[in-house]
């Protein structure tokens, strides 16, 4: 189908997924993901020209709700689950970059 997944590829997807891997893990995951992708490569030679993708098993469209306010959650209950709170807000360490 494509090139086998490389150690670099695994490092890249780990970074995209915000996971840190040790060198050993990087080796092991590269092998394991390679084996799964190799099996997945079975679907590559199938002739799917003109076959539409299925994103969803249901033929539903236009599921809509009315624009009516519904009671939400109490702030205290919400914030009780937060790792850190300040001034009624969720506290996080400094943010280095602006949103993309």
């Amino acid at each position: 189908m494509t090139e086998p997944i490389s150690r670099q590829d695994v490092a890249h997807v780990a970074a995209l997924a915000r996971l840190r891997l040790t060198d050993d893990e990087l080796d092991r995951f590269t092998l394991q993901l390679g084996a799964v992708l190799d099996h997945a490569a079975d679907v590559a030679p199938l002739d799917t020209a003109g076959v539409p993708p299925t994103a969803h098993p249901l033929p539903l469209v236009n599921v809509l709700r009315d624009d009516t306010v519904v009671a939400g959650l109490e702030r205290d209950e919400v914030l009780s689950q937060a790792p850190a709170v300040e001034d009624g807000r969720f506290r996080v360490p400094r943010i280095l970059g602006e949103a993309p």
Partner: peptide, 27 residues
């Protein structure tokens, strides 16, 4: 300019106390 958010029934309002217009969906 809707009364509620895009995917839940929380008010679409500006200037309210922080984290008071929230529910499981928009959180």
């Amino acid at each position: 300019a809707t009364a509620t958010k895009l995917f839940c029934g929380c008010p679409n309002a500006f200037g309210d106390e922080p984290n008071t217009n929230v529910c499981p969906v928009c959180l």
